[in-house]
């Protein structure tokens, strides 16, 4: 399951719950704007070992077919995935 952005953003007083509880995993903003560099996968080099997925602090790398996919809405561009990949299959490219 991939957490996802919700359409409804509670803003008014009435939208805010009276109790201090709310739905778990409710996301309304992306983190993409934090990124200076974007991890780009070279599929020809990736062997699907999932090391990058394991070590991504934001959990934005997902198993995809026998390789991986990156959720760019929430990737912060830290570069850990690129460093951990022994096959150098992930390159950090400057965001324009």
């Amino acid at each position: 399951m991939k957490p996802y952005l919700r359409d409804f953003v509670p803003t008014s007083y009435d939208d805010i719950p009276k109790a201090t509880a709310y739905e778990a995993g409710y996301l309304v903003t992306k983190n993409a704007g934090w990124r200076n560099a974007r991890p780009v996968l070279d599929e020809t080099k990736c062997i699907g070992c999932l090391n990058c997925y394991l070590y991504c602090p934001d959990g934005v790398i997902f198993r995809e077919d026998s390789k991986i996919g990156i959720d760019y809405d929430f990737c912060k561009g830290c570069g850990i995935c690129s460093k951990i990949c022994k096959l150098k299959a992930i390159k950090m490219e400057a965001e324009k």
Binding site: M1, L50, L54, P57, D58, C78
Partner: peptide, 29 residues
């Protein structure tokens, strides 16, 4: 338990920790 057998669901997602935060990695895993 390893990367391949680990639960694929993410339970700590979209958080506002600094990029590369080790604490968020520990909590996520």
């Amino acid at each position: 338990i390893n990367a391949k057998t680990l639960n694929e669901t993410e339970f700590f997602y979209g958080h506002k920790a600094c990029a590369g935060c080790g604490g968020s990695l520990a909590v996520r895993i």
